[in-house]
Nucleic acid binder design. Structure first.
Ligand code: FES
Ligand code: FES
Lengths: 154, 154
DNA sequence: TAAATTCCTATGGGATTACTAGGAATATGG
DNA sequence: CCATATTCCTAGTAATCCCATAGGAATTTA
């Protein structure tokens, strides 16, 4: 349970790659991380809209982090892919429930949310990417790895 | 994100109801908690297989907790519905990764898992059900509430 | 023996996920 | 200046999962 979607795992792997390489094209990141290239394009674009990466179009272009990896908390990445943390609907919305702020179940779900949130705030991208990595954790579900040739890094 | 499935929310509400009533039929629990009756039957059965409730068949039968609510940690309920906590495949399985125990990404996912797990272990069903409740948190997705008449409790 | 109940299996519709496909827009290097 | 590398945009799709629904067999009791 609580399985993290492939999309989020891909995002993390891609960002870790960018952190180490200093910037790269979507195709090369996909090849290196064994992610479907076209699918990754969309993910990277989403990360751009969230202000985590920036991009240069055209030949020689690609993606790079907007900030040092140490200034990108993991919760920001997760939020960019999946939106806000919300285990049940009425969390953060006291108008849903007649018991308002005194609702025990709400406190329970709030506690769960806080627990995850504070953990995700305590770790940043640099913590994950700092060591020389061979692969990055989580294989996702890609069964058709990119075959495209990608010669040379930037 | 991290949305808790309706099934799990239903299970929790049903169990809280049983904790307060001391035992009831699936149909009456469904009515009281606004859950699809037939769907709830399956859920209660699953909770039975997990050893959280027990049941009596036939007229006058129903479900009741196997233990005091204070001895049922929330993690047991969640595990009964969704299986073990596993954000990514390679968590708990060092054979997946060439970096073995030194893999930073794994430590990250392990940390997330531990964080959720320890919280869910720290709360029990009595904590949720102790107060006189009107409704129980989280509405789920049931749009066709049970219409069946259910007269009188046990 | 009728009614109430759990227990079992099968099916379906809707939403989400994880891609796939095609190409327009844009920038660069030679 | 143009072939090429790249991002960016939109649409479609197959598979999976979730949330039930349906029907009825087995069991127990009043
Ligand atoms: S790849 Fe998952 S533990 Fe290293
Ligand atoms: S029902 Fe969700 S807060 Fe009370």
């Amino acid at each position: 349970m609580f399985q993290v979607p492939a999309k989020t795992q891909y995002a993390i792997r891609a960002l870790a790659h960018l952190a180490r390489s200093g910037g790269d094209s979507a195709a090369r990141v996909a090849l290196a991380q064994n992610i479907s290239a076209k699918y990754l394009e969309g993910i990277l674009n989403q990360l751009k809209l969230a202000g985590i990466v920036t991009s240069d179009r055209g030949r020689g272009g690609g993606y790079r982090l907007t900030r040092p990896a140490s200034e990108i908390p993991m919760i920001e990445i997760v939020a960019a892919m999946e939106g806000e943390l919300k285990p049940v609907e009425c969390v953060d919305d006291s108008s849903v429930c007649s018991r308002g702020a005194f609702c025990m179940p709400r406190k329970f779900w709030q506690g769960l949310k806080d627990s995850v949130e504070s953990y995700l705030k305590s770790v940043n991208l640099a913590d994950l990417a700092e060591e020389p990595l061979i692969t990055i954790c989580g294989t996702g579900k890609n069964k058709n790895p990119t075959k495209t040739e990608a010669k040379g890094a930037r």
